[in-house]
């Protein structure tokens, strides 16, 4: 039953018009890697470029934006068109509904992000590409996007402008404050995502934690926000 909700949500997410914009966003690192590959000169450091691409663009901006928009749309659009009423007015456990939504948003995000990261790595590193160099950043992107999706689903239940608030968090908090203050980075999803990149690539700043802790934090953020969202679903005013 719940797989039906997951499948329908995934279909709705992939068919929405803004997915085209998200494809363009997800293709940005690929285009940058392609430009780098075409203009590469003998003295260039492929690892350094790839590291910057993943840590400064992919995880904090591309993955965050894609997951934010899919996460917000999973429930947000249904609040707008009233579809949410047909789901809420069923005896399904609220947590199961939320998990189906988060899972659908996460799947949609990964469908865009995973090929983009692999292509970006292949173009940037060419023959230097190893499973580890793509695998560890991939784990970071996968887990960070899970946390972003769950947090975005929660946001969409509490506010009418979840994308604006989400973008403000990504730009102001993660992109600005958390990059200057080490303690603020502990409240940044992308900082934990970048911790996985640091396993195989040089990091601009000291990692916020080890990969194990980062993984636990990201999964915990996803679980906690999904749980709160399930509670919110029984409290928020529906259309």
């Amino acid at each position: 039953m719940i797989d039906a909700v997951y499948a329908l949500t995934l279909r709705s997410l992939l068919l929405q018009k803004r997915t085209i914009v998200l494809v363009v966003v997800a293709l940005t690192p690929v285009l940058m890697a392609l430009a780098y590959a075409l203009a590469r000169s003998p003295g260039d450091h492929d690892h350094s470029f790839y590291s910057d691409l993943v840590q400064q663009l992919f995880v904090p901006t591309v993955a965050a934006l894609v997951a934010l928009v899919f996460g917000v749309s999973a429930f947000g659009d249904e609040r707008e068109d009233g579809t949410i009423l047909y789901l809420v007015a069923t005896p399904q456990a609220r947590l199961r509904l939320v998990v189906a939504k988060v899972a659908a948003a996460w799947t949609a995000s990964l469908l865009l992000l995973v090929p983009s990261l692999i292509l970006s790595g292949a173009l940037s590193l060419r023959h230097g590409l190893t499973a580890g160099l793509v695998g560890w950043p991939l784990v970071g992107v996968v887990l960070a996007s899970l946390a972003y999706c769950a947090a975005s689903v929660l946001l969409s239940l509490y506010t009418r402008r979840p994308i604006v608030i989400g973008v403000l968090y990504i730009v102001l908090w993660e992109g600005s404050i958390a990059t200057f203050a080490a303690s603020a980075a502990k409240l940044s999803i992308s900082a934990y995502g970048r911790a996985f990149v640091g396993k195989v690539l040089p990091q601009a700043a000291a990692p916020v934690s080890g990969t194990l802790v980062a993984g636990i934090v990201l999964v915990a953020v996803a679980a906690a926000t999904a749980w709160i969202a399930a509670r919110a679903l029984g409290r928020v005013e529906l259309p």
Partner: peptide, 14 residues
């Protein structure tokens, strides 16, 4: 909700 059927003002879903 097993015992409730609802016809909201909104269009049918999906």
């Amino acid at each position: 909700y097993r015992r409730i059927g609802i016809v909201p003002d909104h269009s049918p879903p999906w």
